[in-house]
Design a protein around this nucleic acid. Structure first.
Lengths: 340, 340
DNA sequence: CTGAAAGCGCTTACAG
DNA sequence: CTGAAAGCGCTTACAG
C-alpha cells in the first residue's frame, strides 16, 4: 500500500524546496534544467498527481459542475446528464449529481451543500414541490453569491439566470395540428396537474391549435392526472363513449397506458384512436404499436446547458449579470405507428 | 451580490481571532458564553457555512463517493444510482458520477481524476472494454493507495475488493427452469458476446437447467449478438423454422425485439413462443404483451454497495484488507403476460 | 537558479 | 477565556 505522494515528500526526498518541486512540475523555466528533469523523473516514477482539493482551495475554483434534478430514473433526465457530462468532460470539468426526488427540502439541502465550495456552478431542473410552492429563495441566494445557475426544462421566470428550454407551447401546438391534419377532431389532452410549468404550456398549445382550426375547445377532454392508475378509468370512459378519436398525452407513460386501455376496450390504435406523446423515450420506441412522439432532445439540452454554464464560468469579465439568455431547443415530431 | 463570508471576515468584523470564531461556531466550551453567542449570532446573520473544500483538505476526507458506470441512460444503472444516493445522503455523503461510456480509456481517466483527492472511495461497474481487455491496473492502483472500491454487477474476480452482485447463474437457471416447467423444450438463449462477465454466467445457468432436465443442449440455440438489429434476422429464422418455443433473453431490449419479430412472422406470444427477459426494467412493464422478467433490484444493489463502502470508510481500524466481502442480491421472477 | 513566505479556509494542540 | 502557530497540499510573487 503506497499512499499518494505529495510535493512535500518529493521535496524532502530530493532535498530541494517545495517551491522548486512545484515549479519544476509545472515546467517553469525559472528552474534549472537539471533540477527540473530530476524532479520530473522522480515525480513520474512515483506517479505524482496533484491533489485536486488543494488545487481547488488555492484556485478558488473546483472545475466541477453541480447538477440537481428531480429524478434520475427517467429517460429524459438521463439523456440530459449524458449531454452535460459530454461537454463537461471535453472542457475538463467533472459533474456531481444530486437528486431532489421532487422534494423542496431536499433540493434546498442539496444546493446548500454543494454551494459551500464544492462546485463552480449549477445546472438544475426544479422539483415539482418547488414549482408548487413557488419558493426560489435558495436559488436566488446562490446566484447572489456569484455562483452561476443554468436552469433547464422545469424552470421558473421568477429567477433571473440562464435557461434552456424547449418551446413547449409550439411543440404541443404542432402535435395537435398534426392530429387535426389527419382528420381527427375529438382530441383529448392527458396532462399533469397545473403547477408543473411545462404541463401548463403544453395545455396552452393544445388549446390554441384547436381554436385556430375552428374546433371548439371542450373542457371535458382535458384530463389532469397525478398518477397513472386513475388515468385508466377516466380515459376508458371517454373511449367507450366514443367521445374521442385522438389523444395527446403529455408524457409517454400516459400514452402507453392509454393504448393498453384502448386495446382492452377493443379499440384499434391508430384506426379508432390516434395517440401522440410528448417526450420521446424508450417506451415509445418499443411499445406496440410504436408511439408517435414529440422528441425533446435531452442530450442537446444538456450540452447547451453545460456550454452556457462553462462559458459563464470562464468569461473572466464578471459580466454585467443582466445578459442572461434563454436558449430554446427545437423539437420535432417522430412519426410512428400510433398515428397515421 | 454578497459573497460567501469566511471565518477570517467574521473574526475581523468582531475583532476577535479566527480560532475564537471557529471554536465558537463549533460550540467549544473553551470559549466564554458571551463571545460564543455573539459570534454565533453574527454568523447566523451572515449565513455563514463552512467551506467544504477547506474542510476536506483539513480532514483529509471529502465525504463524497465516486461512482463510475458504463452508461446512465439505462434503467438498471439509474436505479443503482438511486439506491446509492439514498444511503449516501442519509449518511451525509454526496456522490459524484462519471460515465465511462463503456470505454476503457475513459474509465481510467475518470478514476485517476477522482482519485486525486476528490473522493473517499469508489463504487463502480466495469466498462465492456475493460472486461474485454482484462486490464485492471487502474483499479488495483487506487486500492493500493488505500482508497476503498466496491464493484457491482459487472465485476471481475481478478481484483480483490468488496463486491455486490446478483447470482446470475442461479437466476438464469430458475428462469429457464420455469420455462421448462411450462412445457417448453426448445428454448433459445439470446445473449451478448462472451467477455461481459454476466453474459457468461447467465449462459452457464441456462445450460445447466437444460441438462438437469435431460434436455440436450443445442449450440445453435445460443445466439450471441452485439447489437439489436442483427438479432431480428437470426431469431426470425429460428422462429420460422419452428425450431424454438421459448426464448430466454439476456436483457429486455432483446426480448422486446424478439416479441415484435414474432408478431411480424405471425407467431403469438406466449402461445407459440414464451419469452423471459433478464433485468426488470420499464420496457418489460409497458410492452405488449408485458414481459416476464428476472428482477434484479438495482436499487438494492446500490444501497448495499453504498453501505459497504461507507462502513469501510468509517471503520477506523484499517481493516486487515483481506476481509473483503461479496454480497449476493437475491432475484426473483416477475411473471407477466409473455409466459403462461 | 533556488527558496522562504504568504495565502486559499479551515481546525486544533498548545501557550498565556 | 483567547489567540498565535502549525498544518492539510498546493501556487506564486518576491528575495537573494
Amino acid at each position: 500500500m503506497k499512499k499518494k505522494v505529495t510535493l512535500k515528500q518529493i521535496a524532502k526526498e530530493l532535498d530541494v524546496s517545495i517551491s522548486t518541486v512545484s515549479k519544476s512540475l509545472r515546467n517553469s523555466l525559472e528552474i534549472g534544467e537539471e533540477t527540473r528533469l530530476k524532479v520530473q523523473a522522480f515525480a513520474k516514477f512515483y506517479n505524482y498527481k496533484p491533489n485536486n482539493i488543494a488545487l481547488s482551495l488555492k484556485n478558488r475554483k473546483t472545475k466541477t459542475i453541480g447538477i440537481i434534478i428531480p429524478e434520475i430514473v427517467h429517460y429524459f433526465f438521463s439523456t440530459v446528464i449524458n449531454g452535460i457530462e459530454q461537454i463537461a468532460n471535453e472542457k475538463g470539468y467533472s459533474v456531481i449529481i444530486c437528486l431532489s426526488n421532487d422534494s423542496f427540502d431536499k433540493e434546498v439541502l442539496n444546493m446548500e451543500m454543494l454551494a459551500n465550495g464544492s462546485i463552480d456552478g449549477f445546472i438544475m431542473s426544479l422539483s415539482k414541490e418547488t414549482q408548487y410552492k413557488a419558493d426560489f429563495h435558495h436559488i436566488t441566494e446562490v446566484i447572489n453569491q456569484g455562483m452561476p445557475v443554468v436552469m433547464f426544462d422545469r424552470i421558473t421566470n421568477e429567477v433571473l439566470c440562464d435557461k434552456v428550454i424547449i418551446d413547449d407551447k409550439t411543440a404541443a401546438y404542432e402535435a395537435v395540428q398534426s392530429l387535426i391534419d389527419k382528420g381527427r377532431k375529438k382530441i383529448a389532452l392527458v396532462t399533469t396537474v397545473d403547477y408543473v410549468s411545462v404541463g401548463k404550456l403544453r395545455t396552452d398549445g393544445y388549446i390554441k391549435a384547436l381554436l385556430d382550426n375552428g374546433i371548439p375547445f371542450n373542457e371535458n377532454l382535458i384530463i389532469k392526472i397525478e398518477d397513472v392508475d386513475t388515468c385508466e378509468i377516466t380515459i376508458g370512459k371517454l373511449m367507450e363513449d366514443k367521445a374521442i378519436d385522438a389523444v395527446f398525452a403529455v408524457n409517454e407513460l400516459f400514452a402507453v397506458t392509454i393504448i393498453k386501455t384502448a386495446h382492452k376496450i377493443g379499440l384499434k390504435v391508430p384506426d379508432d384512436l390516434a395517440v401522440i406523446a410528448f417526450t420521446d423515450g424508450i417506451i415509445s420506441k418499443y411499445s406496440t404499436p410504436t408511439i408517435t412522439t414529440v422528441s425533446q432532445s435531452g442530450s442537446k439540452m444538456g450540452k447547451k446547458a453545460a456550454k452556457m454554464l462553462i462559458d459563464r464560468l470562464e468569461s473572466e469579465e464578471e459580466d454585467g449579470e443582466e445578459n442572461y439568455k434563454t436558449e430554446v431547443i427545437e423539437t420535432h415530431l417522430i412519426e410512428r405507428e400510433s398515428t397515421n
